[in-house]
C-alpha cells in the first residue's frame, strides 16, 4: 500500500467522521428545538450528504490505489527485476510458472533438491579405512 492510498483513506475516514458528527448535531438540534415538523421532509442538509458521498468515493479510490503492479526480484541479483504489469496473478498453470522461471526459482525444487540421506563418499572412506586397517594386520 503506497503513501498516496494511505493518505486518501485517512482523508476519507476523517471526512466521514466529520459528516457523522455534523449529522449527529443536526439530529440533536431537531430534537431539542422541536423542528421535526419543518425539517423532516427536507432531510439532512446537502453539504453533509455531499461530504459523505465524497468521503465514500475517495475511500474507494484509496482502496483501489493500494494495489500495485506485481514485481519480483530474481534469485540472481544480476538479473533485472521482473515486472509483470498486472495487479493479479494469472491462474493458468503454464502462465503462473512464468514468474518463477524468470526469477530463477524452481517450483519442483523441494523434490529435486532433496538433501542426500546418505553421504556415499563418507561411507566409502570409512570402508576404505577399515579395509586398510584390517589388511595391514
Amino acid at each position: 500500500m503506497g503513501s498516496l492510498s494511505k493518505g486518501l483513506i485517512v482523508v476519507s475516514l476523517l471526512q466521514l467522521f466529520h459528516a457523522g458528527f455534523s449529522s449527529s448535531e443536526f439530529q440533536q438540534l431537531l430534537k431539542t428545538q422541536q423542528l421535526h415538523k419543518y425539517l423532516n421532509e427536507a432531510g439532512l442538509p446537502l453539504d453533509i450528504k455531499l461530504e459523505v458521498f465524497m468521503g465514500l468515493i475517495i475511500f474507494v479510490i484509496g482502496i483501489f490505489l493500494s494495489f500495485e503492479k506485481l514485481q519480483f526480484q530474481p534469485i540472481e541479483l544480476t538479473r533485472p527485476t521482473v515486472i509483470t504489469g498486472e495487479y493479479l496473478s494469472d491462474i493458468r498453470y503454464r502462465k503462473a510458472t512464468n514468474v518463477e522461471n524468470l526469477t530463477g526459482s524452481n517450483l519442483e525444487g523441494q523434490i529435486i533438491y532433496t538433501s542426500n540421506l546418505t553421504d556415499v563418499h563418507q561411507k566409502r572412506k570409512e570402508c576404505r579405512d577399515w579395509m586398510n586397517e584390517n589388511t595391514a594386520k
Partner: peptide, 15 residues
Amino acid sequence: DSTSLVFGLGAGIIQ
C-alpha cells in the same frame, strides 16, 4: 469487505 463496511457507515450517517 472494506468498501461494504464503509458504505454501511455512510448509509447510517445520511440516515
